[in-house]
């Protein structure tokens, strides 16, 4: 459960929200705060890309796929897994995906 701006959202035991249409940037901020993580512009780029990817394909990317997508749009400095894991130490797909309001990815890779 997550309370944002007086609104209560159901989440699963790992903190993923149930409906991605309920998402707002404030929700991402609150989830990050719960993880002691402060969202910077660098985080937001990835979160937005995760959301866009899911909107387009109805599936979360793998780290490899995300890396390639980021390399295409944001360049090689950011399109590598070291950079992504530094931003999202719990795993870029799980953590950025959760902040982006996406469902829990079905695969672990």
């Amino acid at each position: 459960m997550l309370e944002v701006n007086g609104k209560i959202l159901e989440t699963d035991d790992e903190g993923y929200i149930e409906n991605m249409d309920d998402w707002s940037p404030e929700i991402a901020e609150r989830m990050a705060a719960n993880d002691d993580c402060e969202l910077t512009d660098n985080h937001w780029e990835v979160i937005k890309l995760m959301r866009n990817y899911y909107e387009e394909y109805k599936i979360s990317p793998t780290v490899r796929v995300l890396t390639r997508e980021i390399r295409k749009t944001l360049g090689a400095d950011k399109g590598n897994s070291r950079y992504l894991y530094a931003l999202f130490p719990y795993g870029p797909i799980k953590q950025a995906g959760k902040y982006a309001g996406l469902p829990k990815p079905s695969t672990c890779v």
Binding site: E56, Y57, K58, I59, P61, T62, V65, R68, E69
Partner: peptide, 15 residues
Amino acid sequence: IKNFSPTYRALASYG
């Protein structure tokens, strides 16, 4: 039911 047809377009990005 979930429309998974957009995911076929993700196959290319998955290689």
